[in-house]
Design a protein around this nucleic acid. Structure first.
Lengths: 202, 202
DNA sequence: GTCTATAACTCGATAGAC
DNA sequence: GTCTATCGAGTTATAGAC
């Protein structure tokens, strides 16, 4: 599909101009936001013409859709990597929070703006709507269950942890105060750890 | 300031056409979002002409700024009311969560879209940026302190609680599942209550 | 305080040459 | 695959009658 038989030189590092353009577009959106971005200003910032964006993505919404999908896939991959590297869910949670917080200044504005549009029903953000609602909760709940929490409570804790992470991320993006955000998340970890282990001592 | 000496008939219930227009604009934004709203479609939905919106608010951004400010003032007033009515901070927190969750389907999309724009530096959202960062945390931390939590931990708990509420609100807006959101917030309340009282029993 | 008319501009998308 | 030229619709904002 959409393949022209004349690829320049069989390069494996460059998956094609479309992907390169998409990657640059993500960086541009993360820096400048989505709301007031026209195809023309975007293309100028990307070093192309707006005609090329339409050529590769069909329309402005097609580009936005591709951006949302690509960012989601990246974060999901990061989560799986982190879950595979840590057996303790609290350790995994902290590691993933680190990953997210590192990129907060860049991606949080994009995430929350797109989330606002997604829950308003913007058609290009359908997949984001799904991940906001159930996608991440299921995986997190499974991780809690593996560490011995009963199923129903695991779901509640998953929802709470995910919500807290997103909310603290919003505040981190507003303040830039990484230490305060880390402390708030550490407080959550402590509360959950002490609240789920029976605490035999004392 | 901006007062014309000829108010129609000294009505106290109608504070003027500007305020009435603002109130209707808030409702309209809550229902239709901000992103793709032009002055013309907005004015048509409000029953005026776009010329009138500009007359009263100066520009489209002026209107957005007024909307943000009015919504904030309303929520702050609701919080103060709730804090005054409950001495137990957990009770107050639950009551305020109820208030917010009741209005989630309507106001959460507006809140998150505007927050995304605010942390991107949109000029009309300056006051929202302030409330996102510090405004609410201070009051919440004070409430925690009053119930016996040491100051530094009170701030951490305030940040966590606020973040969790915002994050769970985002999920509530995406799913519409009020029971699940309530359960997640109740889980937080339990964790904090058990984590801050020494737990002499057992 | 409310209207119509319109200026001045930008938008997404298309056509077609190269 | 990249370019220029351009269409038609929609944008904020202004002018001025009533």
């Amino acid at each position: 599909m959409s393949g022209s038989g004349a690829e320049p030189s069989g390069d494996q590092d460059t998956p094609g101009p479309r992907e390169a353009l998409l990657a640059r577009a993500i960086g541009w959106f993360a820096e400048h936001g989505v709301g007031d971005t026209s195809l023309r200003t975007l293309a100028a910032g990307l070093g192309t013409s707006h005609r090329m964006v339409i050529y590769h993505f069909g329309s402005r919404e097609g580009l936005l859709s591709a951006v949302v999908e690509a960012v989601e896939r990246g974060e999901r991959a990061a989560l799986e990597e982190v879950l595979a590297a840590h057996s303790d869910p609290f350790e995994a949670g902290r590691a993933f929070w680190d990953h997210v917080a590192d990129r907060a200044q860049v991606f949080a504005p994009l995430f929350f703006e797109l989330s606002g549009l997604a829950i308003q029903g913007a058609p290009f953000a359908g997949s984001l709507r799904h991940w906001l609602a159930t996608g991440w909760v299921d995986d997190l709940a499974r991780a809690y269950q593996l560490s011995g929490v009963e199923p129903e409570r695991a779901v509640r804790l998953a929802r709470l942890s995910l919500g807290a992470a997103r909310g603290v991320l919003l505040e981190l993006a507003a303040t830039g105060d990484r230490a305060a955000a880390d402390a708030a998340m550490a407080e959550l970890t402590d509360l959950v750890r002490n609240g789920t282990t029976p605490r035999r001592d004392r």
